[in-house]
Amino acid sequence: FDTTKYTTATFTSTKVIPRGEHKYDVEGNLTLKGVTKPVTLHATLNKIGEHAMVKKQAVGFDASGTLQRSAFGIDKYVPAVSDAIN
Rank of each mutant, 00 (worst) to 15 (best):
H22P: 08
K56A: 06
L67F: 07
P18K: 05
K56E: 06
V26A: 06
V81S: 05
G34N: 01
K56S: 10
G34W: 01
V59D: 02
T8E: 08
H51E: 09
L67W: 02
T3P: 05
P18A: 10
D62K: 11
T31A: 01
N29W: 05
I74F: 08
P79N: 10
L32I: 10
L30I: 04
G73E: 05
T4P: 04
R19T: 04
V78S: 09
A58F: 06
R19W: 01
M53Y: 11
Q57V: 05
T3K: 09
L67V: 09
N29F: 08
D75W: 04
P79A: 05
T8V: 03
K5E: 12
Y77V: 03
K56R: 15
V35M: 01
S13Q: 15
Q57N: 13
P18V: 02
M53A: 10
G60M: 06
T4A: 11
T8F: 02
I85K: 15
F61T: 07
G65M: 02
Q57P: 07
E50F: 12
Y77W: 15
T36S: 08
R19G: 01
N29C: 05
K33A: 00
T14Y: 13
E27W: 06
D2Q: 14
T7H: 13
L67M: 04
A63M: 14
K33P: 02
V35Y: 01
Q57W: 10
G73N: 07
G34T: 00
D2I: 10
F72I: 02
P38R: 00
P18S: 06
D75K: 15
G73D: 11
P79M: 07
A80P: 03
D83G: 14
N46H: 08
N86W: 09
D25H: 02
F61I: 06
A71V: 03
V16T: 09
T66Q: 09
I17S: 13
K37H: 00
V54P: 01
A84G: 12
K15I: 09
D62Q: 08
A9H: 14
I48L: 13
K23E: 11
G65Y: 00
T44H: 01
M53C: 11
S64F: 07
D2S: 11
K23T: 08
K76T: 12
N46W: 00
T8M: 00
I85Q: 15
D2V: 10
S82W: 08
L32P: 03
T40I: 05
I85S: 11
F1A: 07
N46T: 05
G65L: 03
D2R: 14
G20V: 12
K56Q: 12
K56P: 03
H22D: 12
A80R: 13
S82Q: 08
V39S: 07
F61R: 07
K47T: 14
T40L: 01
A84N: 15
A63D: 00
I85D: 11
K33Y: 03
V81M: 13
K55R: 11
I85A: 12
A84V: 14
K33N: 05
T7M: 05
K5A: 14
G65C: 06
S82M: 12
T66V: 15
P38Q: 03
V26S: 03
D25W: 00
Q68H: 15
S70R: 06
S64C: 06
E21W: 05
H22F: 13
M53E: 10
Y6H: 08
L32M: 11
I74W: 02
V54Q: 08
T66F: 02
V54R: 09
H42F: 04
V54H: 13
A71S: 09
T44P: 00
Q57I: 07
A80K: 13
L41H: 02
E27A: 09
